[in-house]
């Protein structure tokens, strides 16, 4: 363990901890933009600059390991001005289109600009045109001008998903997030989930909703057996997108695959059954619940009476909940009286 003093607060942190982690331990917030806990820190946005006693230049807190006896200052007028300049420079390119941006209200840049009281007029460049190719995933829309090049998406794609299909393309001011030739995107949307601004937006559902209008219901994904935790975003009784905002939640820590993140449309699909159907004259016709359930009860009872309980079989479901599976086998065993119950565990 090493001792670090942050703004006069002494904390003990493990060797190898960064200055930012030490500050968090001390309960001191250092503004960040490119930093995300689950990704390796790169110190590229330069928002987290701090002063370290004995160092002639400011250092970035997120990717500099703390040293024993280090004395750190996280806030001064000079540091605030450096941070303001970072934001001013970002606003050279980033349009102030917050009113029409999907991320308005949930945007790290918006929050920081607000916090530091910065306007867009300080620095400017000559007008220029940029040609950015289509984004790697058809499920995601890219807004290159909104991009702050924090590289979170690039790191998430590489470090979390092990894919590495995006990178910073071109140099300097003309950089943008573009494809890595020869590496296929799997449309998992990891990049989308870590973007701090509205540079990547979900393009599946046409309905837009301000962050605070949609309700986010945490639940478990209904596809494979991993059991990813996700949030269904609901507006006016319809799912409009899936998000993951809690990166500390096992087992997926905010990651999903293409099915989990973009495969929710079937819930709203017009093919969904809405009424019970009963076969009449060889065709399935709509019926009331009473009619349908009455028929099922009668027929099952008849067959049970005539051929014995074991003439009835039941398939429960690897798709349904535990409670439903429990009730189904209870029904088969206690009500019908047979152990003929199975499901597709083997498929």
């Amino acid at each position: 363990m090493i001792n670090v003093t942050i703004d006069g607060v002494r904390v003990e942190v493990p060797k190898g901890a960064t200055i930012l982690e030490a500050a968090q331990e001390a309960g001191i917030r250092i503004p960040t933009l490119c930093y995300l806990k689950k990704l390796s820190p790169i110190g590229s946005c330069r928002m987290c600059v701090v002063e370290v006693e004995g160092c002639t230049k400011p250092v970035t807190a997120c990717d500099t390991p703390a040293g024993d006896g280090m004395v750190v200052t996280t806030d001064s007028e000079e540091l605030r001005e450096m941070r303001r300049d970072v934001l001013r420079l970002l606003l050279v390119r980033h349009p102030l289109d917050c009113p029409v941006c999907d991320k308005g209200g949930e945007c790290d840049l918006q929050d920081l600009v607000y916090e530091f009281g910065v306007t867009a007029e300080s620095y400017r460049t000559e007008p220029f045109e940029r040609d950015v190719p289509r984004y790697v995933s058809p499920f995601i829309r890219q807004w290159p001008d909104r991009c702050v090049l924090c590289g979170r998406c690039v790191r998430a794609c590489k470090e979390v998903k092990g894919v590495g299909c995006i990178q910073i393309v071109d140099n300097g001011f003309y950089s943008y997030i573009g494809p890595v030739p020869g590496v296929e995107c799997i449309s998992c949307g990891e990049c989308l989930s870590v973007c701090p601004v509205g540079a990547l937006t979900d393009s599946v559902h046409p309905t837009k909703a301000r962050i605070w209008q949609a309700e986010r219901v945490p639940t478990t994904c209904g596809y494979c057996g991993v059991g990813c935790q996700l949030e269904l975003n609901v507006l006016n009784g319809e799912v409009i997108r899936v998000t993951t905002t809690d990166f500390d939640r096992a087992p997926n820590f905010g990651s999903l695959c293409v099915k989990g993140r973009f495969g929710w449309e079937f819930v709203n699909h017009p093919d969904r059954l809405e009424k019970p159907l009963v076969r009449k004259d060889g065709e399935l016709k709509e019926a009331t619940w009473d009619e349908a359930l009455g028929l099922v009860a009668r027929k099952l009872q008849e067959i049970k009476d005539e051929h014995g309980a074991d003439a009835v079989g039941g398939l429960s479901s690897a798709r349904c909940t535990n409670e439903e599976n429990y009730l189904f086998q209870k029904f088969m065993r206690a009500v019908i009286g047979t152990n003929n119950v199975d499901h597709c565990a083997r498929l």
Partner: peptide, 9 residues
């Protein structure tokens, strides 16, 4: 390289 703000912009 386009990564950090002071140099890129």
């Amino acid at each position: 390289c386009g990564q950090c703000v002071p140099c890129r912009v």
